[in-house]
Simulated assay, not measured.
Amino acid sequence: MSRKLGPGKLVIATHNAGKLKEIAKLLEPHGLDCISAGSLGLPEPPETGTTFVENALIKARAAAEASGLPALADDSGLSVAALDGRPGVYTADWAERQFFEGEPGRDWYMAMGKVEGLLQAKGPDTPRDCWFSCVLAISWPDGEHVVYEGRADGTLTWPPRGTMGFGYDPVFVPQGRQQTFAELEPEEKHAISHRADAFAKLKADQFAA
């Protein structure tokens, strides 16, 4: 049995308004008032972990300690079997432009191209198995925490297809489907995604009658 969230305020350890809205909607039926770390003026801690679990806990603990409220953080990314699990926790870093690649910011097409280039360099018969991971960490101000891990398996395709996703979605074909995440309607993607898997486990543990 893990510690349970009670009704009241829950800090979502993000500065992204879209992510806050998505998570708040998922948790709304459970009496939680979700507020973002950004709205509280909390700094973003350096993500120095080498696993999704470590980085999610870093963010959740920092938000809980700074706010005095329970906090929820997530960390997610793409792992490719033939690349020894890369990009993994560095999923977003692979999209960061260097000074010689243009204006600072994230270029996801460039990131997808890096993955494809590495696979092609290994030869045409290289397996293209991959998976998305999502880790949700809840931390309380006294340091107690709980973690939930979700996963969506699939294969990589090239060139990218679809416009409805983000990140690596246009090259990820989920297991049992022909379309990429970016070609699926949002409701369909959210029903089978790694984040959906993680939240299903969180809800079953935290809010089961």
Rank of each mutant, 00 (worst) to 15 (best):
M1Y: 03
R3A: 14
L5T: 13
G8I: 03
L10A: 01
V11P: 00
T14M: 03
N16D: 13
A17L: 15
A17T: 13
I23L: 10
K25F: 15
K25E: 15
L27P: 07
L27F: 02
L27W: 01
E28S: 13
E28Y: 06
E28G: 11
H30D: 09
G31V: 08
G31C: 08
D33N: 12
C34L: 09
C34R: 01
A37G: 14
A37W: 03
G38L: 13
L40D: 15
G41C: 13
G41M: 10
G41A: 12
L42D: 04
P43W: 04
P43E: 01
E44A: 13
E44V: 11
P46N: 07
P46V: 08
E47H: 12
E47R: 10
T48K: 01
T51I: 07
N55Y: 04
A56N: 07
A56W: 02
L57S: 05
I58A: 01
I58V: 08
K59M: 08
A60L: 05
R61V: 05
A63Y: 05
E65F: 05
A66E: 02
A66C: 09
A66Q: 06
S67M: 06
G68I: 13
L69P: 10
P70S: 05
D74W: 01
S79V: 05
S79D: 09
A82E: 07
A82Y: 00
D84N: 15
G85W: 02
G85Y: 01
G85V: 08
R86Y: 00
Y90R: 14
A92N: 09
A92W: 00
D93H: 14
W94L: 15
R97A: 05
R97H: 06
F99M: 10
F100H: 14
F100P: 08
E101S: 07
G102F: 02
G102S: 11
E103D: 12
E103Q: 11
G105A: 06
D107I: 04
Y109D: 15
Y109N: 15
M110K: 11
A111G: 13
M112I: 11
G113D: 12
E116F: 00
Q120W: 00
A121S: 14
K122E: 15
P124C: 07
T126I: 10
T126G: 10
T126H: 01
R128V: 12
W131Y: 09
W131I: 03
S133Y: 03
C134V: 12
V135I: 12
L136I: 15
L136G: 07
A137T: 07
W140T: 05
W140P: 01
P141N: 01
V146K: 06
V147H: 02
Y148S: 00
Y148R: 03
G150K: 02
R151T: 03
T155E: 10
T155R: 04
L156W: 00
R161L: 12
G162F: 00
T163Y: 08
T163P: 14
M164F: 03
M164Y: 03
F166L: 03
V171D: 12
V171Y: 00
V171Q: 10
V171F: 02
V171E: 14
V171C: 13
F172E: 12
V173I: 10
P174R: 01
G176L: 04
R177Y: 09
Q178N: 11
Q179C: 14
T180Y: 02
F181C: 12
E187L: 11
E188L: 07
E188P: 06
H190D: 15
I192Q: 10
H194E: 11
R195C: 03
R195M: 04
A196N: 06
A200N: 09
K201R: 15
L202G: 08
D205I: 06
F207E: 07
A209N: 06
